[in-house]
């Protein structure tokens, strides 16, 4: 039941990214919307709770994308590890630091993607359009990413509260 909180937003984000956003052409150059979610998992959730979710998410994204199988799992795993490492130095409660975490996250993910392309394709080179795409991703990530993280945190708290209240009530009913 606890995983429902993760699965439904993830499914919504995948649909949003692969079907709804491409429909509106002007938003086509947006960044991977699952990145803030993975960063959220890294910032506020435990490893045991997050790992199955990020592997499932990575697997679904790998299936939908034409990249080599395992690329998204790799990217999300190292992004998660990177965030867990970053929070050793940053105070996660401070929302003004979220843009920095977002930028770091996008840089980690992009580096993994570009690094994989460079390893697998000897003819790969970083062109001007790739630099423009990365800059555009960073811009959108700084502008919108922190809000996504705040919304996830707020919804997660509300969900947990509702979930505990509901089950505590049931527990009391059964106890009586």
């Amino acid at each position: 039941m606890r995983y429902c909180f993760y699965i439904f937003p993830c499914l919504f984000l995948v649909i949003l990214q692969s079907t709804i956003i491409p429909y509106f052409g002007f938003l086509d150059n947006s960044y991977d919307l699952l990145t803030p979610f993975i960063i959220y998992l890294g910032l506020y959730c435990s490893v045991g709770e997050s790992l199955p979710i990020l592997i499932l998410l990575g697997f679904i994204m790998d299936n939908l994308s034409t990249g080599p199988l395992g690329l998204y799992i790799t990217a999300y795993f190292w992004l998660f590890v990177g965030v867990k490492w970053i929070i050793k130095f940053l105070h996660v409660g401070n929302i003004f630091l979220l843009p920095i975490v977002m930028v770091s996250g996008i840089i980690i993910e992009t580096s993994i993607f570009l690094g994989t392309f460079a390893t697998l394709d000897p003819g790969f080179h970083i062109s001007e359009s790739i630099i423009n795409t990365v800059l555009s991703h960073l811009f959108w990530a700084v502008c919108t990413g922190p809000f996504f993280i705040i919304i996830y945190r707020f919804s997660h708290k509300k969900w947990n509260k509702w979930f505990h209240e509901r089950f505590a009530e049931r527990g009391r009913e059964y106890g009586e």
Binding site: V14, Q17, S18, T19, P22, D28, N29, Y31, D32, M61, L64, S65, T66, G67, Y72, F113, F117, T133, H137
Partner: peptide, 10 residues
Amino acid sequence: GKDPSPWFKS
């Protein structure tokens, strides 16, 4: 649906 990644086109 379209490829969720901006790096691939499918």
